[in-house]
Each structure stands twice: as structure tokens, then as C-alpha cells.
Write a protein that binds this DNA or RNA. Structure first.
Lengths: 332, 332
DNA sequence: CTGTTAGCGCTTTCAG
DNA sequence: CTGAAAGCGCTAACAG
């Protein structure tokens, strides 16, 4: 009969204590507060512990201390290329602090998100909520139960990190104006998205300031297909350049444009946002870089400092920059 | 002073018991084994519990039962577009079974992976290891401690799900042969990758069977840049079509080709693999679809059934299919 | 500096 | 069908 796999029973703190001839507390302290006991006692305990293959039981520690040693991050959709870098940053920060990262996917559904956050909140020390689709009420309710930090959602009183795309967007509008464009169109994403509102506002503001005409087309979804489908409407506005809600949408627009025989950037300019797949397109997309990994990392750091007692509810704003590549040129 | 946020202290089972006039055991059973007690008792306990806002403490349950209610998935790099769909599938399957998903990123480093798996193994009921870069010894060692299921790694005796790209690759070679190509080049990815070996083998086998010449170029990394950098070598082979280790590489190759003035597919055909970003490229990439989400889901299901007592060490092979899009055509 | 003694909140025999 | 009691493995006062 095959050997039983995956059944590793590890020794407990009591067994180590017995084998080392000390009390459980001493073993416990040897691991968590070494400087609290004699160096040689520590050494001895450790020696015995490693010999026995002892490893502290995370769950027991958690129950006893009330600290789970785990934080969660919930995103609307892991498959959306905006999030992986962000998750990666969060994961790295958590890991570095000795925390584990629980992942939740809200499936772009506020109701599901509400459930997921509730569930994950109960088994972690805190939550990072990225691009939440929930209402402020829902978010606040959760924040009352568990430490919560937001990414790309500006709720007063809660710690949050905001990726300020408006700086980058403004730069994009200036860039286009310098090239000679007089009429732009903003292709918007999800209506309920905070980022979308910010970007739209930024395009409008910069356009007004520079005396450009700016139209709008509501793609409503951030997908490749949505981009393709809305090129008709985009072209109908009469604009010579488009700024899309994000790269995914921009990519679709590029494809739709090329399908209609338009060559970019000679006949039409396109600017994306987020810089998640911009570098790997042809022609390479001019876009606003969002530094997603930084946002993820910062959010976790904010959360951990909150757990450490700093309840400042800091509002951290991350700047963005315009990356000019090959989809922008003077109008035809 | 601002109200204290994130400090939700929830009632314990004892408080509910007291309030309901029953014992802790009864409350416990009302939640975990309702059919074990009277329907009205259950109803009453539940009524009181909800009124008090009681929710079972996950950690305490875990300590008491020895079940964490959590599984982990560790991937080489979350930002690699192959993994998000896979993680998503895993997450969905775990969630559906009432489990939470802990995420580990190995950062493409076997040593780090070893550490991460060790750490995560201790706080979960089992682990899904995707495209592991560790040695079989390392993997086996971990499998002895914790239930483990592999994705894209074929270690006898361990439950595993393999994405059989060879079927799709063979179809790609046939497709190219039918178009009239007589000389192909396989552009390989990470040397230590099981998938890479499989794909190379499949190209070779199908090529031999169809009487085609097949060369090889070792890009070694699966990145856009690696693709761009190796077009020189690819062209030098004299082949008229390339099959790349994955889509990312193919995308780079496409860009490099176009930079040298080659137009695809008229002057050169390219086939990718994985179908992770193939649909959003222009021209849309002909590629082998890997169904990553299925793999993630299946792996978690295998893991859960293992936890349920089925120690069959099943080897599940998932088929792939060729998706013909716009980067393949008859040779010039 | 180290040992003793209570728990953390829940599950689970074992009685009744 | 329900209650009492003994832990799960670890931490944290409190003594000594």
C-alpha cells in the first residue's frame, strides 16, 4: 500500500518543552521574544525544537493573540490586467511583514463583493479593497468591523491610496494640444467607477484650459470588444484624437480603427491609461502610467501601520506620468 | 474625537448560549449539524444568534477541528498573464466549497518558492502548485507534509492537472503544413519548464510526421522583450513560420518582425500558445488555447476531494485547441 | 529570567 | 436530543 502522503503531524510546544526540560512559556518566548530570556536557554530550546522539527502552529497563535497574521485584498476581477501588478505589490509588502495574503474576487458584482468582504474580514486582520464597486454605506459598514484601506476610492475618514490619473491625463491633453489637435474625445469606462469620473473630469478641465473641444463617448465597459464597438461613435464626434478610460479599451479602439482602414497615429491619435499592456502593443500605446504595484504595496503598508496603532486615516495620493509611445502624432 | 473604526467585537458562542438559554454545544450544533437537534431548537438559536450578530469564529473553529478552511495557490508570477485566469478558476472553486484562497507569489525563484510553499503549507489545508520551478525532490518533500496538487508538472504519485498543449500544438503544425509551410522554428521558453519541454517535443513529433523541417531558437525567457530580441535568430533559421512557447513571446516576435519591416502573416506566420492575450492583439494571434480557468478550478477540486479522503493521486489531462486567427497564412 | 495558571472560541466525546 | 467537561496549541499575566 502506498505511503500516506500529506499527513505530516508536527510536534507541539509541550513536546518541545518536555524534551528541553523547560516550560511551555519558555519555548513560546524563545520563539516570539528571544531577548526576554537567556541566550543560552534560547539556543538550547531552538536546538531541541529544530531537532524535533517543531514549527509554531499559526492557528493556535492566531486564536491566542487575536491576530490572524493575514490580510486580504479584494479586487473586482483578477483577470483584469490592471490588478495583477497591484496584487503583486500587496503580496510583496504583506510577505515582507510576515503576513499572508488572502485573495478575494468580487466578479465585478457589488453584491458579491459585499459578501466576500464580509467573509474575508472575519478571518483576517484587515482588508485592502481595490477599486470597490460598493456604495459608501457598504464600505463604511465594513470599515467599522475591520481595518480597511481603499485603493482608488475616496471615502473621507478611511485610509486610502488614490492613483491620481488626472496629472497624467492633463499631461496627455497638453501633449495632444501641442501636436495640434483641437478636438478630443474621452471614451469612458464603467459608470460607477471613481477613476472614470476623475479621468473624465481631468480631460474636461485640461481641454477647457487649453481651449480644446472635448466630446465624450460612453463605452461603459472596460473591454477590448467595447473599444472595437465604439469606434463608430468615436469617429462620429469628429475628433482627431481619443483618450480612453484604460489600455484595454484603447487596444480595442486601435483594433477597430485599423479594421476601418484608419492608420494610427497618422490619421488618428489614441491615448490609453494605466500602462498595463501598453508596452506590448503594436504600435506601442501612448498612455498614462499608473504604477499599480506601488499602490498595492502602499495600501498594505497603510493597513499594517493602522494595525500597529496609527489610526490616522491617511489619504495617500500617487502620481501618474504620461508615457509617450507611438500612437500619438499631429492630426491629418 | 473620531470614533474608533475597525474594532468590531463580535459575540461569542457562550453569549449566544446564555441569551438563548441553552448550552454552548447546542449553539455549536445548530450551526454545524442542524439535523442533529430539534428543528425548533435550531430556529430559536438561530433567531438569537442573528439578533446578536453572532458569527462563528473561523480561527477557533480551525484550531478545534484541525481544518483551516483555507487552501493556497502559489504561482511563479501573478503578473504573468497566464496565471490570473487560473487563479480566478481556483478562487471560484475554493469559494464555492466554502474555502478561502491564500495567494503566494514565488517571484520565478525556486528558492523563494520553496520557502513560500513551506510557510503557506503550515497555515492551510492544502496547496495548489502551478507551474512549479522546484525540483521533484523539493516538491515531494512538501507533498509529504501537506496535501498538494500540481498544475503543469508531472510528478508520479501526486495528484496533478496537466494542460496538454501537445494536442493543440500538433494541430498548429498541421495547420501550418496545410498552408504550405515546409520549415518551422520553435521558439522555446524557460528551460526548466515542463510545459516548454512538452511543446518542443510536440512540434518535433508533428513536424517529423508531416515531413517538415523544424529548427529551434532558445529565447529562454517568456517575455515580450525576449521575443523582440530573438527575431534575428528566428529569421536566420530560414523558416517561414514560428511557433512560440507562449503568447507573450509571440507578441514580442510580432513586434520585432514588424520593426524589421516584415508583415505578418503575408511574409511570416506566427503561432502563440496559451491564448491569454492573443485575442487582444492586432493582428489577432493564431494560438493554442489553454483553458487556464479550468485548470485552476480542476486543481482545487482535486485538492478538496483529496481532503475529503480520496487519495487517488489522479492525473487529469486537459485538452487544448488551436484557435486560428490572423497571424498565419501561406508562405511568401 | 522562568514557571504556573488561565484562558482565546469552538468542537466533541461522553453522560444523561 | 441536549448538557458538561475536556481539550486544540499557544500566549499572557502574575508570581516567584
Amino acid at each position: 500500500m502506498a505511503q500516506q502522503r500529506g499527513t505530516g503531524k508536527s510536534p507541539t510546544i509541550s513536546e518541545v518543552a518536555a524534551a528541553a526540560g523547560v516550560s511551555k512559556s519558555t519555548v513560546s518566548r524563545a520563539f516570539s521574544r528571544p531577548q526576554m530570556i537567556t541566550a543560552e536557554t534560547v539556543a538550547h530550546v531552538m536546538e531541541v525544537a529544530t531537532r524535533l522539527g517543531y514549527v509554531p502552529n499559526h492557528t493556535a497563535q492566531a486564536l491566542s493573540t487575536g491576530r490572524a497574521g493575514t490580510v486580504a485584498i479584494v479586487v473586482p476581477d483578477i483577470a483584469n490586467p490592471f490588478f495583477p501588478p497591484l496584487i503583486r505589490g500587496a503580496q510583496a509588502a504583506a510577505d515582507q511583514a510576515g503576513f499572508s495574503l488572502l485573495l478575494g474576487d468580487a466578479d465585478e458584482d457589488p453584491t458579491r463583493e459585499d459578501v466576500v468582504v464580509g467573509k474575508l474580514g472575519r478571518q483576517t486582520d484587515g482588508i485592502v479593497l481595490a477599486s470597490s464597486r460598493m456604495t459608501e454605506e457598504q464600505i463604511s459598514t465594513h470599515a467599522e468591523r475591520r481595518p480597511l484601506v481603499l485603493i482608488n476610492r475616496d471615502v473621507a475618514g478611511l485610509p486610502r491610496v488614490l492613483i491620481d490619473t488626472s496629472t497624467g491625463i492633463a499631461a496627455a491633453v497638453e501633449h495632444l494640444a501641442e501636436l495640434g489637435h483641437r478636438h478630443l474625445v474621452y471614451v469612458s469606462g464603467p459608470t460607477s467607477s471613481w477613476s472614470n469620473a476623475e479621468r473624465r473630469r481631468a480631460v474636461r478641465a485640461a481641454g477647457r484650459r487649453l481651449g480644446l473641444k472635448v466630446s465624450a463617448v460612453a463605452a461603459r465597459r472596460s473591454t477590448y470588444d467595447a473599444g472595437v464597438q465604439h469606434v463608430g461613435a468615436i469617429l462620429d464626434t469628429g475628433a482627431s484624437a481619443a483618450i480612453a478610460f484604460d489600455d484595454l479599451l484603447a487596444q480595442g479602439i486601435l483594433a477597430g480603427l485599423s479594421a476601418r482602414g484608419f492608420v494610427v497615429p497618422e490619421q488618428f491619435s489614441v491615448v490609453g491609461c494605466d500602462d498595463v499592456l501598453a508596452a506590448t502593443m503594436s504600435p506601442p500605446l501612448t498612455t498614462v502610467s499608473a504604477h499599480g504595484a506601488d499602490a498595492g504595496r502602499t495600501a498594505v503598508e497603510l493597513l499594517l501601520s493602522y494595525l500597529g496603532g496609527d489610526h490616522t486615516a491617511e489619504r495617500r495620493v500617487l502620481d501618474t506620468t504620461l508615457v509617450v509611445r507611438a500612437t500619438t502624432a499631429p492630426p491629418a
